[in-house]
Design a protein around this nucleic acid. Structure first.
Lengths: 268, 268
DNA sequence: TCGATTCATGCACGTTTATGCACGGTTTCT
DNA sequence: AGAAACCGTGCATAAACGTGCATGAATCGA
């Protein structure tokens, strides 16, 4: 499996596919990417980034513009508005995950579009304490009157859209959540849950280790992929929520590691 | 033999496509755009804006007129889109206030709908550090790539929509903003700036006292009114930004207290 | 096991693009 | 009619660009 090979390279190196995946992620998150920034951040030459962008544009994954690239359907409203449109499959995943939040719990809700969908899927009358480091998620949760909200502060990382730095980690160290809903950029039986960014992984690892149980809702496109930075092993997650179309082999690989896998039913 | 300075300015942080997209957006929103305003707001020369407008007109996206451009179908804006927009008067107030944020500053942006409008009015390529205790504002600012954002954390007060408690106050005590954009629920020459909630007032007072200068943008409906909890006296604010229709008497009362009053001009 | 091959990548080069400025003409307003 | 604002054009320049080539690592075939 290509995951082994990757461990031989330096942690900052990314396989081509991972790099493109990250770029796409960034496009969705920030609404744009700059060639210079990507090059500097990923430690490759601008040429390489431009090549990537060209190929992605040719594949219809983004729109090439002078200086960088834009998402294929650019700016149909603000970021929050765009993110508010949750595809049905992701919504099903979210509905399944929300079931694990029980009345009175203290829950940490991590960054990520899947977790935003989870936030939106929370019942309006649920009474619980939600902690998050993501302003967008906090905003979404503001509409649920039953919730107590706690915001983790600090400098916001633009790539992640959340507070994940030293300041945020200190906040996190004061918490003992009953449940942690972890976002992840990759999920592989051997590599475990992984993230694109070092500090993000660091933060996730910290908050996961402090939580009584950890749940990760994972969209199928992330199955079997590994991002460069390890978060936790599969068996360290209490529950994995997968989409109904998740490959049998993948599910088996997870359960072999001792994970509890739950499948999300499409709404019927 | 020639000026050096002009090269240094060349690096604009907004991609061409984004700029045009923003202009189109503005066309739909305001029903027109002025070259001068766009140039100032986007930090590019009028030449560039005119070029953009010319190209957009050539592409049939707008109609070029003397001084700016008009939407191709002047009547067309969708009603729902229009309803969600910040009223033009508040937008004018916001534009005037944004002018006080200078490149490189550290600015605290308080909670409140006027301050949200200010956040939205910030030029996309402004480079500054913005601190806020309001997730909604943080989310809006996420779309301005030039900004460093710092989020003040802690339990969120639902009434205010921001973190204002003891935790947030401890965060605030570590700050020394160059400028504080204070929201207020009432503004009266004698009562000063006031707030509806005790803790909110407490927090505002704290952050205002720690800032090198304090600016309050005040909609006309708040003039001459006093909410139950005092924040600061009028003379403790460096600048008051009022709407163009603010009563003469009110302005006089403020200036008599030693405040610097600035009036926002409506666009056009 | 070893050579051939593929492929991602970086570098050097010449080209294109976006932009600001100077200049002179044109429109608008009073 | 005259002034002020606005316009387009041409030019200069830095940043971004694409291409062709070289390199080195992984893969394949025998």
């Amino acid at each position: 499996m290509h995951v082994y090979a990757r461990f031989l390279i330096m942690a900052s190196d990314l396989l081509l596919r991972e790099r493109k995946s990250l770029i796409q992620d960034r496009l969705g998150t920030n609404g744009r990417v700059l060639a210079v920034d990507l090059a500097r951040e990923l430690n490759v030459s601008e040429d390489t980034i431009r090549r990537d962008l060209r190929e992605m544009a040719a594949a219809g994954l983004c729109e090439r513009v002078y200086g960088g690239a834009l998402p294929i359907a650019p700016d149909a409203g603000s970021l929050s508005a765009r993110a508010a449109l949750v595809p049905e499959r992701k919504a099903a995943l979210a509905r399944a995950s929300v079931g694990f939040i029980e009345r009175g719990m203290t829950v940490f809700l991590d960054a990520g579009s899947t977790n935003l969908a989870i936030a939106q899927a929370i019942a309006p009358d649920l009474s619980a304490t939600i902690v998050t480091n993501t302003p967008l998620i906090a905003t979404a949760l503001m509409e649920k009157p039953g919730l107590d909200l706690i915001l983790i502060g600090g400098p916001l990382d633009r790539a992640v859209g959340a507070a994940i730095g030293a300041r945020a980690q200190r906040d996190a160290e004061l918490l003992r959540p009953d449940l942690c809903l972890l976002g992840s950029c990759g999920a592989d039986a051997e590599a475990g849950l992984t993230a694109f960014h070092f500090e993000d992984a660091e933060f996730k690892r910290l908050i996961a280790s402090r939580s009584r149980s950890v749940l990760a809702a994972i969209t199928s496109d992330k199955l079997g992929t590994a991002a460069p930075h390890a978060v936790i092993d599969i068996d360290a997650a209490s529950t994995l929520v997968l989409e109904a179309n998740a490959p049998e082999a993948q599910i088996a690989a997870f359960t072999a590691q001792g994970a509890r896998v739950v499948l999300a039913r499409e709404q019927g």
